[in-house]
């Protein structure tokens, strides 16, 4: 049985198609991501969905059920059900790490901690939404100020062992602070580390509100930033953070799994 999950994020649309055996074991058939650009919500979701289907030679009729999640999930008119990012994230993580208890989800526009019951169900969450300082946007804005790509930015931070505190707690004010650090000849890698330490410490404070239990899994776009992962481990005072192979697709995957379960 084929089911689909669609994650309408603030920046990108992610689609995951899975095939679930009668026994209940799912396998991922296709992951697909688009930047919607000028397309509005439903049209972007349709485009991403149809592209994913045609890439594996499927038609809409072959799909038993579609679920949607993400900040823009209400715009996905063809989805049968809409689920929260917390439920979808917890379910998706259970595919990779059945022993996960704490999920750290850091995307472009939000940073949150999710506590799961060990069966892929979210039982509690705490987060920082609607303020760029607690999310990936903060790092993105600062990497622009440093004229580095996000990847270079993350790598640069790994080369620093300095701890410079950032005074500004707001992305807009922090941009000026970064500019003045550049002017005072502070090495870029030290600035990058200061920025990622700041995001990690804010995210960590939110995760602590739900409690930190092993295994800890990081999902969302910031998984691709090794500097952030390192800063997060230090902030949370843990040795290991599990990183799924397809971090940005975890919520969409969880959606598809929830769609399949509902059919069984």
């Amino acid at each position: 049985m084929i089911t689909a999950g669609i994650d309408m994020g603030s920046r990108t649309v992610k689609v995951v198609l899975i095939d679930t055996e009668a026994s209940g074991a799912p396998s991922v058939k296709k992951t697909h991501l688009i930047f919607p650009g000028d397309l509005d919500g439903d049209a972007a979701a349709e485009k991403a969905y149809d592209e994913a289907l045609s890439a594996v030679g499927l038609k809409r009729d072959d799909v038993s059920s579609v679920y949607a999640t993400g900040a823009g999930r209400v715009m996905v008119n063809f989805a049968k059900e809409k689920v929260t990012e917390m439920s979808a994230g917890a379910k998706g993580v259970s595919y990779f790490y059945p022993n996960a208890r704490t999920i750290v989800d850091v995307g472009a526009e939000e940073g949150r901690g999710i506590k799961t019951d060990g069966t892929g169900k979210a039982v509690d969450f705490a987060g920082n939404e609607k303020c760029a300082a607690g999310a990936g946007s903060f790092a993105e804005a600062m990497s622009r100020a440093l004229q580095l790509t996000l990847k270079e930015f993350g790598e640069a931070s790994l080369r620093s062992d300095k701890t410079i505190p950032m005074n500004a707690q707001c992305t807009v004010f922090a941009e000026s602070e970064v500019v003045s650090l550049i002017h005072s000849s502070t090495p870029k890698e030290d600035i990058a580390k200061a920025v990622l330490d700041a995001v990690a410490s804010r995210v960590c404070a939110m995760v602590r509100r739900v409690g930190i239990d092993k295994d800890v899994v990081l999902i969302g776009g910031m998984v691709h930033n090794p500097g952030f992962v390192s800063s997060l481990k230090t902030a949370m005072d843990i040795d290991e953070v599990k990183l799924p192979d397809i971090p940005e697709f975890v919520a969409a995957l969880g959606c598809a799994m929830l769609a399949a379960e509902a059919k069984h």
């Binding site: 000028d38 526009e109 609607k130 303020c131 760029a132 946007s137 992305t171 807009v172």
Partner: peptide, 17 residues
Amino acid sequence: SSVCVVFAKSEALGLLK
């Protein structure tokens, strides 16, 4: 609707579009 200036900026661009 966004309070955050960073997000209000994207929202403003969206309104122009």
